[in-house]
Amino acid sequence: MTGKTLKLRVRTKKGVLKIDNLTSESNLIELKKSIAGLAGLSESQFKILSGYPPKLLSITNEISTLEQNSIKDGEMFTLEEQTVLTTTPSESIKFESKLERKVVPADNSCLFTSVNYLMTDGIMDLNCQKNLRELIASTVKKDSVYFNEAILGKKNSDYCDWIRNSTSWGGCIEIMILSKYYKIEICVVDIRTCRIDRFGEDCNYSQRIFVLYDGIHFDPIHMILHNDKVQTKFSTSDDLVYVKAISIAEEAKKARQFTDTQNFKLRCLVCQEPLIGEKQAQEHAKKTSHINFGEF
């Protein structure tokens, strides 16, 4: 085997494995066999992801070399294993846990319902919003120095009254407060941009939750397990779930399941004036102090 010797690493559930028997001229078949041997798996039981965020390594041409696939010395791969459940000695089925969107009602409290669902391991409580709104109002009121008019867009006391109203939508400020309260990283997966904004990223929390955002509405993202249970919290070191969350946004974007906030139609619920886009709504709020809007 010719070519430059490569030192490669593979992140697995059991830890990081080292591969040092391949060169730049080795092909993808050899890479897969090496990983299978080290991980103790058959080649059909796993997928290989590369780069960061990790993406599925295309193996359409198995005889292409590692160099042709831009695989360089020091490359770190991530192994995505598929679970095999054995029901009888002669019968087995394959099951792969699935990350998916859980739809919650569009009732102006979708953020609070989503976060509560994820923090309670999958309990849907449509009445949780009152307590969470009160929690946020109390947090803001206690720290009027940080939560000033420049941050809130209104006086501290006005904001507290506003967020207690069940028709008020939650957003960045509320997510930041909930992240600190629960001591968990909250990842907002934006459908339109397929970007993830991580609230609490700088706090080194050990766990994270994901919410999908379409421009005006939040839904929780959970993982369906083989026993019909759901997993809602994930390790902040789990890159695979992070990648899958982005994939959910990409699929939703292809289906155009997002709202264009620059051009969507709104109506002021105070004076009934029709408005177009977020900018007009902000200008109307500044001019009239009306802050309750509905989409139509």
Rank of each mutant, 00 (worst) to 15 (best):
L49Y: 12
R164D: 01
N61C: 01
D214P: 04
D219M: 02
M76S: 05
G215K: 03
N127P: 00
E251I: 06
L178T: 09
D214N: 15
C268S: 06
L126C: 04
E149D: 15
T193Q: 11
G37C: 02
L178G: 08
K7Y: 11
V16G: 05
L240W: 08
I216D: 00
Y146K: 11
Y159V: 02
K279Q: 12
S42I: 02
L57R: 03
K13G: 09
E273N: 08
D239H: 12
F199A: 06
H290K: 04
C128V: 08
T167P: 00
L225G: 01
K253P: 01
I209F: 08
L38R: 14
S206W: 00
A137K: 01
C203Y: 03
V10S: 07
M124A: 13
V270D: 11
K130H: 12
K265L: 13
E273P: 01
S97M: 04
S97K: 03
L85M: 05
E91R: 13
P89D: 07
E295M: 08
C271I: 05
I209D: 06
N227F: 04
D260W: 00
I291A: 07
G122S: 06
M223N: 04
R208F: 06
M124H: 10
T86Q: 12
Q207R: 13
K155I: 04
K142G: 03
K279A: 09
D121E: 15
V140E: 09
T259N: 09
S90M: 02
E273G: 00
L118A: 12
V230M: 13
V104I: 14
L41Q: 00
E174A: 08
A281V: 03
R267Y: 09
K265N: 07
S168M: 13
K98A: 11
L111S: 14
M119P: 07
I177K: 05
I209G: 05
L6M: 07
L126A: 10
H290E: 04
K55M: 14
I175K: 04
V230Q: 06
H290Q: 05
L6T: 12
D161P: 00
Q45G: 10
T2W: 04
Y205P: 10
T232C: 15
K4T: 14
P220I: 02
G122Q: 07
N21A: 11
K286V: 08
L38C: 11
K233F: 01
K18W: 05
E251S: 12
R256S: 14
L240N: 01
L111G: 06
E91D: 10
K233Q: 15
G153K: 03
A245W: 03
I48D: 01
E283F: 02
A252H: 05
W169M: 05
T2P: 12
T236G: 09
E80V: 07
E278R: 09
D239A: 15
Y242N: 13
F296I: 15
W162K: 01
A252I: 00
S90T: 12
G215L: 07
K154H: 01
I93M: 13
A106E: 10
F293P: 10
L79H: 05
K279N: 07
G74P: 08
V104R: 03
K154V: 15
P105A: 08
T86D: 10
I186L: 06
L132P: 12
P274Q: 06
G153E: 12
H284V: 05
S168W: 12
T236Y: 10
